[in-house]
Design a protein around this nucleic acid. Structure first.
Length: 302
DNA sequence: AAGACGAAAGTGGTTGA
DNA sequence: TCAACAACTTTCGTCTT
């Protein structure tokens, strides 16, 4: 096993890292960021001489995943068969443990089961990549463990987790889209999103307008060149400090609008506004700033 | 007639006393 | 807890193509 050199989480600075050999990952215990997921151990560090040893040492099974309520690793306190192996004194203990197990199951796990299927529904509706779904599931699991769902609807917490996971994975969806997919009010999604990220101490970088470009562009049937141009415009705008404090969707929309004009694939302000979920007015304001500050007028008059 | 433009008032959320 | 505030929206009248 090669020594790992990573000692600190680049995301939150925590040194509290967890090596998970079964999944080949090094993950941060604080924020769940996976630092290293290509760690592969080709060696077999044990040998099996007989069936019993093999049983103990083999560690393969169904893949572990946070999208299952128990991470795919079910554990049950045994049933009748085990019961007969126990001596008298242990019988009470046995029942006590079973009872506990059932209580825990009914409370946390049932909630998780339900919530994670809701989460699956939402993320497939939004066609989210699996890494986002994974991360959202992980967040939700932590939220349940910290009792954050109490007093909030399960759906809204799921929605908040999905939104946060999207942001963290650089595939942002707008609050509107999440709200529509999860049937939770936009306001509520935003509120639980802020609550959950604060309570779980999850750091979210301000979303980059450029992350929205590919999706908006494809909704508008814009060419790859126009897309690239839009991203360049956004980068220039960021250098000119035109982006801070502004809604990222508005910036992305305006950049796309300008680049569609430059590349002769004109879309109306209304069309762009609709897919970006902003108004024409916002596009106009951003658009005006872009032209003034970046000197793009020359390119338009050609 | 449709699209672009801009002024003005309204909305929801953040911030700082 | 409240008021000030910035960003964004809604609405609407006017100009341009």
């Amino acid at each position: 096993m090669p020594e790992k050199t990573v000692k600190k989480c680049p995301e939150c600075g925590a040194t509290n890292l967890k090596v998970n050999r079964d999944r080949g990952e090094v993950a941060c215990r604080e924020c769940g960021l996976v630092l290293e997921d290509t760690m592969v151990d080709f060696e077999q560090e044990w040998r099996e001489f007989d069936a019993e040893a093999a049983e103990k040492k083999r560690r393969t099974g169904a893949p572990m995943s946070y999208t299952h309520f128990d991470q795919g690793l079910g554990t049950e306190v045994g049933t009748k068969a085990d019961y007969y192996k126990l001596g008298g004194g242990n019988k009470n203990k046995f029942f006590r443990l079973r009872k506990w197990q059932q209580r825990i199951s009914t409370a946390i796990e049932r909630n998780l089961k339900l919530a994670l299927s809701e989460l699956k529904r939402v993320s497939s509706y939004l066609k989210l990549p699996s890494n986002v779904e994974e991360e959202a599931s992980r967040m939700y699991t932590r939220a349940v463990q910290k009792n954050l769902v109490r007093g909030r609807s399960m759906e809204s917490v799921v929605a908040g987790c999905v939104y946060a996971a999207c942001r963290r994975q650089g595939v942002p969806r707008t609050l509107d889209e999440i709200a529509e997919a999860s049937d939770v009010e936009k306001k509520e999604v935003g509120r639980t999103y802020r609550f959950v990220t604060r309570e779980l101490d999850i750091k979210i970088l301000p979303s980059n307008p450029a992350d929205y470009v590919p999706r908006f562009a494809s909704s508008l049937n814009l060419s790859a060149e126009t897309q690239t141009r839009a991203v360049e415009i956004i980068e220039a705008a960021q250098r000119a400090e035109l982006t801070s404090g502004r809604g990222p969707t508005g910036i992305a929309a305006a950049a796309l609008y300008v680049s569609s004009l430059i590349n002769g694939e004109k879309r109306t302000q209304r069309e762009v506004a609709d897919v970006a979920g902003v108004t024409e007015v916002t596009i106009r304001n951003r658009y005006k700033e872009l032209l003034e500050e970046l000197g793009l007028e020359d390119e338009l008059n050609r």
